[in-house]
């Protein structure tokens, strides 16, 4: 029999799914719809990031580069090689997955802050490559990717909204599968104490590499879909450390241990980013706000919004559930009373 909290969880998931699916119909204008596409795009990226960040605790600031690789691979295959758009997308996913093996082999040798630095360097190196190699990438002038459908602008947004939502569902499903699996338990033991996990027989290096490749494939697919949707790629935006930083903020804000943590984070940060861009235009104020938000999250909600809400619900709904210490203290009192009664 499913427990009360399980029913509540399922209901929340169903509600989220309905809200996501209903959004295009209630969006008042194409701009809001396009902002919705962007938010779902971020949700896919943040969930993909969380395969590495959430399970193993390796904080990558370089996932923007993997998305950029996926975008450019798709774009180049369509624009220069003339491949059908969605075949190009699949090929780009496979290509970045393969490329993630040597990248992961190099980057996952180091831990903690060193890994963060290596992941940043990945973005910077690729930015230089894609800016300079203009015969293939179009360089700083950018790359125009032909649209896959001949549709009006609102229809175009609408279709891509659902494509991104489908990819999001796939990523969430994959994360859920790993989360409950023995492989996932191994990954989480790496997050807790990598040397200890290794001493217990977990092949930590292989585990990290596998999940890095899975993460890279989903990230690249999201990037490729973005290329087909947006239709114009610029190295400065595709290979930007900001993208990776946004993903970290979203995942941390929502909660990296929660299936829907990154989605909730993307919803909050994505909407906030759009709001700041509309209200304050091109000023760097949105960067200040994001930085402030990140600091507040790390200081006050290190586990994210979702666990904080769960704690709040628990506090209001507390009944017979108490901590271990309280139980043992109560037992102790009872024992003492019994002993006192016995010696009388």
């Amino acid at each position: 029999m499913p427990s009360g909290s399980k029913v509540l969880k399922l209901a929340a998931v169903a509600l989220l799914a309905v809200a996501v699916l209903a959004f295009p119909s209630i969006a008042p204008n194409p701009y809001i719809l396009s902002a919705g596409v962007l938010v779902v795009y971020y949700a896919v990226l943040a969930t993909s990031w969380n395969f590495v960040g959430g399970f193993t605790g390796y904080i990558s600031l370089g996932h923007g580069a993997l998305a950029g690789l996926g975008a450019y691979s798709t774009g180049i295959l369509v624009a220069k090689a003339g491949l059908p758009p969605f075949l190009a997308l699949a090929a780009a996913g496979a290509f970045v997955g393969l490329l993630a093996v040597p990248i992961g082999l190099a980057a996952l040798r180091v831990r903690g802050a060193s890994f963060v630095i290596v992941s940043i360097s990945l973005v910077l190196i690729l930015l230089l490559v894609f800016q300079s190699w203009s015969s293939v990438t179009g360089g700083s002038r950018g790359l125009v990717v032909p649209r896959p459908f001949q549709l009006t602008r609102p229809e175009h947004h609408r279709i891509f909204y659902f494509l991104f939502a489908g990819l999001l569902a796939l990523a969430v499903l994959a994360w859920w599968l790993i989360d409950r699996s023995r492989f996932g338990l191994g990954l989480k033991s790496i997050r807790e104490d990598e040397d200890k996990a290794e001493a217990l027989g977990t092949a930590t290096y292989a585990y990290k590499l596998i999940v890095f490749v899975v993460s890279a494939v989903f990230t690249a697919l999201a990037g490729g879909l973005y290329a087909l949707w947006f239709g114009d790629l610029d190295p400065v935006f595709q290979f930007s450390i900001l993208t990776g930083s946004y993903l970290v903020l979203m995942a941390l804000l929502g909660g990296v241990r929660q299936l829907f943590g990154p989605v909730v984070g993307a919803l909050i940060v994505g909407i906030a980013l759009e709001f700041f861009k509309v209200e304050y235009g091109d000023t760097p104020l949105h960067l200040v706000a994001t930085g402030l938000l990140l600091a507040l999250v790390v200081l006050f909600m290190p586990d994210g919004v979702l666990p904080a809400i769960a704690d709040l619900i628990k506090r209001f709904g507390r009944s017979d559930r108490t901590s271990i210490r309280e139980v043992s203290a109560a037992e102790l009192r009872e024992q003492r009373l019994q002993n006192a009664g016995g010696t009388k």
Partner: peptide, 22 residues
């Protein structure tokens, strides 16, 4: 319980995707 369970890491893809709470 999870601490103890993580001491039997799986080998192979099928074993890895099995539920951690067998």
């Amino acid at each position: 319980l999870e601490n103890v369970l993580s001491a039997v890491p799986p080998t192979g893809l099928i074993g890895g995707l099995r539920s951690a709470r067998g």
